[in-house]
Design a protein around this nucleic acid. Sequence first.
DNA 1: GACAAAAAAGGAACCGGTTCCTTAAGGTTT
DNA 2: AAACCTTAAGGAACCGGTTCCTTTTTTGTC
Lengths: 327, 327
Amino acid sequence: MTTIADIAKLAGVAKSTVSRYLNDGSVSEGTKKKIERVINETGYTPNAFAQSLKAKNTNIIGTIVPRLDSYATSRTLIGIDEQLKELNYQMLISNSNQHLETEIENIYTLAKQKVAGIILLAAEITEMHLEAFAKIDVPVLLVGQQHEHIYSVIHDDYHAAYEMGKYILDKGHKKIAYLGVTEKDIAVGVKRKQGFKESMKSTSDCEVKYYETSFNITEALEKVPEIIDSFQPSILVCATDNIALGAMKAASIKGLNIPKDLSITGFGGYEITGMIHPGLTTAKFFYQEAGQLAARSIVKLVRQEELELLNVSSFQLIFRESVDSIV
Amino acid sequence: MTTIADIAKLAGVAKSTVSRYLNDGSVSEGTKKKIERVINETGYTPNAFAQSLKAKNTNIIGTIVPRLDSYATSRTLIGIDEQLKELNYQMLISNSNQHLETEIENIYTLAKQKVAGIILLAAEITEMHLEAFAKIDVPVLLVGQQHEHIYSVIHDDYHAAYEMGKYILDKGHKKIAYLGVTEKDIAVGVKRKQGFKESMKSTSDCEVKYYETSFNITEALEKVPEIIDSFQPSILVCATDNIALGAMKAASIKGLNIPKDLSITGFGGYEITGMIHPGLTTAKFFYQEAGQLAARSIVKLVRQEELELLNVSSFQLIFRESVDSIV
DNA sequence: GACAAAAAAGGAACCGGTTCCTTAAGGTTT
DNA sequence: AAACCTTAAGGAACCGGTTCCTTTTTTGTC
């Protein structure tokens, strides 16, 4: 390993001069040349640890994700990474594997590594989270979930669900099943359901039933047949695309034709929803863009610039073949 | 920020004693208690940079991925992460966004950050890669691709394709289209094709044609109709599940029934292939397990232990509804 | 109780940078 | 030509740990 002292000796100058050359650059042309030559010859790069030790902070933004194998997560990470690179920050991914304790642990680990900021893609914010945020002296940004005291970037779950509700009413559906998730998840479990419920208020001759499942495709697959048998809805509104995919599979297994026998919708706008047959009608969220927004936002926080507490990313309904018109 | 000097002062001992307490632990019971109390009170954690600066290396394994939004990548990362945690190493993900130059850059960046080792999920190994590996003094492990001089963990692409070929011959197919990818990708582009070709040698009354597309779903979607029209195969063997998904969509759009009018197979074993209708017959690779193997392997390299140059992860054919029998 | 050996604790140097302070050199002003 | 300012460069301290070496304390043995 060559160090700054080696470079200094080889160039016949002091350490501080080399350091100055590398940073501000108040160095005469002659010595610049000398140092440049030596650095090129040796292929020297400064030791990042020594720099960070002195600087007491880094340009690293830690990003904690609940899982890596999810379209939403991946796209969000891509957006974050893209934007951070542009802002000269680096992304450090920390996977908590849908494990609450690991998630908390990761917060502390990142803090210990002196990251400049933390982006948290959480499904749920607990007391332990708040405690961790308070203890560490690092700005935190939530993505996908909101909280009254923490900066966040969220998707417009409420209005997406509202518009989706309006749309299926337009299509004439009267027997509607909504398949949601746990209310611990404010965004997906609460907001989407609220938006949907609100849209249902505009009509009175509809029968709407609400069910709950997990985020797991296979669990949806198991739960759906029962819903179909007992309630016989004309449409199944699923709180995520994955649930919708499970529902479609379940319907296919039962020999039902989508959308003739049963319409299905999702939320998310995963790429796969356009590739299957029939295509799935869904509300598309802009994960990558939200990731970019999150990156810009956390950097603002790091730089102590002004930022809205709540930042909303938009959505777009995508109409495909999985919804039939009832006449 | 509290430092080890603060702790030492508060506990009334020397810095070195605190350090010893934190590491080997050759400290008397009495002082242990004192130090422990102070550390608990202050919530002190050692500065990772100072430690790394002295230690001259880290327990971080850098993992370079070509893209984040791929099932194979995600699963592999999960496996790596899981296993590294167990071995007390940390994973640092670096995304090259399918950009060769970024990939090379990332190699150098990771080396500069003094990672203990690098796992590279590459699609292609160029001269620039080899040059980078030679320059940096960090062990490197390839995943998914092999190279005569570099340690690697690969999937058994050759035999998976061979078995797949055998299977579809068994099913009686005679007009077979193979839709592959660029031969720059040794694993997917070359090995799968080779294995498949080998299996085709066992018969003489088959017409087999080879085509090429990209890894992109939409490109497959565009290319497939032409293949169907000009060649009219009874089966389309796709080199990846994504290509197969594109092909299925294309077939659906043309109004073809899968598998009656056209059989389709893939490679990969993505979860979604079991969720669509009809289910896709595919060769499943064990990405997560391969990731774990990769983690164990890179750690062996870091510790300068013995390791085979080539480590092969197995596969399993999954038979679903997308392949018909020709009688 | 004296003495040797072992254990515990202290002190200083070091890791590789950055930065502050000081000195030296060169240029300008009067 | 002296006084002053500016620019360039050197030297030393510092960031927060670890480790080696030395000194002090404890323990055990005769």
